[in-house]
Computed example of a mutant assay.
Amino acid sequence: MAGAGPRAGGPAERPAVQALGALRNGELSPGELREGALQLAFCIGCGNAADVDRGIQDPIADHEKERARP
């Protein structure tokens, strides 16, 4: 799927929005989000969990950049 991803309306869009909100609100840490994606593999299948994992990578990177700013 060319162009699919968190910014392009692909299957990872919803996890990205939810992940960024959870990070900004202090509800989950980056490690907790990654662990959640791993735990989902059992329930939703590895392919779907991989989509979730891809969907949370950009929000985690954005959040870490925001926290690194002085």
Rank of each mutant, 00 (worst) to 15 (best):
L33I: 02
G31E: 14
A61M: 04
D51Y: 10
L20S: 09
E27T: 11
F42H: 09
A41E: 14
A2I: 11
N48Q: 05
R69T: 07
L28E: 12
G10H: 09
E66N: 07
G31K: 00
P30N: 07
R67W: 00
P6K: 02
P70N: 03
P6A: 15
R67F: 03
A2R: 12
C46M: 15
I44Q: 04
G26A: 14
L28F: 11
N25R: 12
C43S: 14
D62T: 06
Q39V: 01
G3R: 14
D62S: 05
N48F: 07
E27V: 12
Q57W: 03
S29P: 05
E32P: 01
R14N: 12
C43W: 10
R34T: 13
G9K: 06
A68W: 04
A22D: 14
E27Q: 13
N48C: 09
L28N: 08
D51N: 14
G9N: 04
A37Y: 00
Q39I: 00
A37T: 07
G21L: 05
I60T: 06
L33N: 00
D51E: 13
G45P: 00
G21H: 08
V52A: 09
S29Q: 10
Q18V: 11
E66T: 04
A49N: 09
P59C: 04
E66R: 08
G55L: 02
G9P: 10
G31I: 05
R14D: 05
K65W: 03
A49W: 05
E64H: 06
C46A: 15
L23I: 03
I44Y: 02
L23P: 06
C43T: 12
V52R: 03
C46S: 14
A50L: 13
D51W: 08
A61H: 00
G31N: 10
G21V: 04
A4H: 09
Q39H: 08
G26W: 12
A12H: 05
A61S: 08
A22H: 11
E64G: 01
D62L: 11
R54K: 13
L38S: 06
D53K: 11
Q18T: 01
A19H: 02
V52Y: 04
G9L: 07
A50F: 00
L38G: 09
D62K: 02
L33E: 05
P6E: 13
G47V: 04
Q39M: 10
C46Y: 13
G36P: 00
R14K: 15
P11G: 14
A16V: 00
M1H: 13
R24C: 08
R54N: 04
P11I: 13
R14L: 14
L20E: 11
L38C: 03
N25I: 06
V17R: 12
I60P: 03
N25K: 14
A49G: 09
P59D: 07
G47A: 13
N25A: 14
R14V: 15
E35Y: 07
R69W: 03
A41H: 08
K65C: 04
G31M: 08
D58Y: 01
N25G: 11
A16T: 02
N48L: 12
I44D: 06
C46F: 14
A8S: 15
D53M: 14
P15N: 01
L28S: 05
D58V: 01
R69A: 13
E27L: 12
A8L: 05
G55V: 03
S29W: 03
E13G: 06
I56C: 03
L40W: 08
G31D: 14
A68N: 01
L28G: 01
R67K: 15
A41T: 02
A4W: 01
E13I: 07
G36Q: 10
L40C: 15
